[in-house]
């Protein structure tokens, strides 16, 4: 590899903060943030699976899940999974060069957000109906 002795001063791209936040931009970074959150969030799932090894540990984890904070984490985890999934489908659509026109990409970004919230609520309603 060739190492340049003197660094050429080249113009830098404008800083992030001068751009107006658009929905596509927001969903792009949210996809990455949510992906990172899921990366570490999987530890909670592993913890839960391990706790299923004996009833006493499992009862304790269930008590924690029952709190409002536990419910929030649980709802957030499932939302994050579905949001990242829809965001991924959007990327797969883009991989085929479709859905990139003005209007289309904004529509897909909104669909990711609205779709993920809607799907999460539906999943929990169905899950609760199956319980009773």
């Amino acid at each position: 590899m060739i190492e340049h002795k003197t660094r050429v001063e080249r113009p830098l791209s404008p800083h992030l903060q001068i751009y107006r936040l658009t929905i596509t931009m927001a969903m792009s970074i949210v996809h990455r943030i949510v992906g990172s959150a899921l990366y570490f969030g999987m530890l909670l799932f592993v913890w839960w699976l391990f706790a299923a090894g004996n009833a006493r540990d499992f009862d304790r984890i269930n008590g924690w899940i029952g709190t409002w904070f536990g419910q929030l984490i649980l709802f957030g985890f499932t939302w994050a999974l579905l949001h990242h999934m829809l965001g991924g489908i959007r990327h797969l659509i883009w991989d085929t060069t479709r859905g990139l026109e003005p209007g289309e990409r904004e529509m897909l970004a909104w669909a990711t957000l609205i779709g993920s919230v809607t799907l999460t609520v539906i999943v929990w309603i169905v899950a609760f109906m199956m319980r009773s």
Partner: peptide, 13 residues
């Protein structure tokens, strides 16, 4: 996976 979590979370051992 999401359905499994939603149906099993908080259920008995």
């Amino acid at each position: 996976f999401v359905f499994l979590i939603a149906t099993l979370a908080g259920r008995s051992h």
